[in-house]
Amino acid sequence: MIAVEDVTYTYPGAGSAALDGVSATIAPGTWTVIVGPNGSGKSTLARLLNGLLAPSAGRVTVDDMDTADEARAWDVRSRVGLVLQNPDNQIVGTVVEEDVAFGPENLGVPRDELRRRVDEALAAVRLTGLERREPHLLSEGQKQRLAIAGALAMRPAYLVLDEPTAMLDAEGRSDVLGVLRELQAAGTAIIHITHDLSEALYAQRVIALKHGAVAYDGPASALLADDALMASLGLEVPPLARLVSALRGAGLDVGDARTAEDVVEALWPS
C-alpha cells in the first residue's frame, strides 16, 4: 500500500505550498485517477509517490518504507514506477531494448534476468519486434509505450503516470490505455493523472485535487453527477456522458454506456 499522510510540499523559494495537508491511501492492484486543474498539485503528488520529492511535512510510505529515507530510495523507486507526459524527455537508450534495460541494469540485475525483463516489458506494451529500433524512429504512441516499458522493467507494484496520453493521437491513446488495463488485470496498481475525464471512466476511484488539497475522493460516477463540484474543479463532463444523461432525461436509459457502441447497442439492439 502507498500511504500519503497529511503531506505538505512547498517548492524551494515558492511562497505557497503546492500540496497542503493531503492524505490518501492507494491499495495494490487498484486503478486510481487523479484529476484537477493545472497547478492543483497533481504532478507534485506524482513525484512524492515515488520519492522523487520528499514531503516538507507529513509522510509518504510505500509498502511501509518511508520515501524520505534515503537508504530506501532505490527500493521505493523500484516499487513505484513513474512515467511522465513527454516521452522524449524520458528516453535515454540509443535503441529500444537498451532504453528498457537502463533501469534494471543500473541496479546490477544479472544478464539473463535482464534479457527476460526487457522481453517481458516490451511484450506488455506491445513493442516486441522493435528491440533494435532507434527510439526517435518510433511514433509518439510507441515512444510513450517505450517509456512505460522502461518503468515496467523495474517490476513496479505501482505505476504512476502523469498525463501519459496528453501528447498522443486517438490511436496512441487507446493503445496506451489498453496496455494500462492489461497491466492492472495482471496486478499492477495504476495511478493515472489526467485532464480527460473520459479516461476516468475506467477507474475504480477518482481523487480530485484543487489548490493543493483533496477536493474529492470516490467513484467517478458520483463526481460526474455533481455539476457544481465538476465546475469548481475546472473539469468537464465528457461529451459521451452528457449524451447519456440527456438520453436519460428523454426517457431512454442506456445504462452504464462507456462508448458510442454501447449507446447504440442499447437503443437499437443488433
Partner: peptide, 12 residues
C-alpha cells in the same frame, strides 16, 4: 450532446 440525444430519441 444534448441535441444529439434529441436526434437519437426522435429517431427511436
Amino acid at each position: 450532446p444534448v441535441q444529439a440525444a434529441a436526434t437519437l430519441a426522435k429517431a427511436r
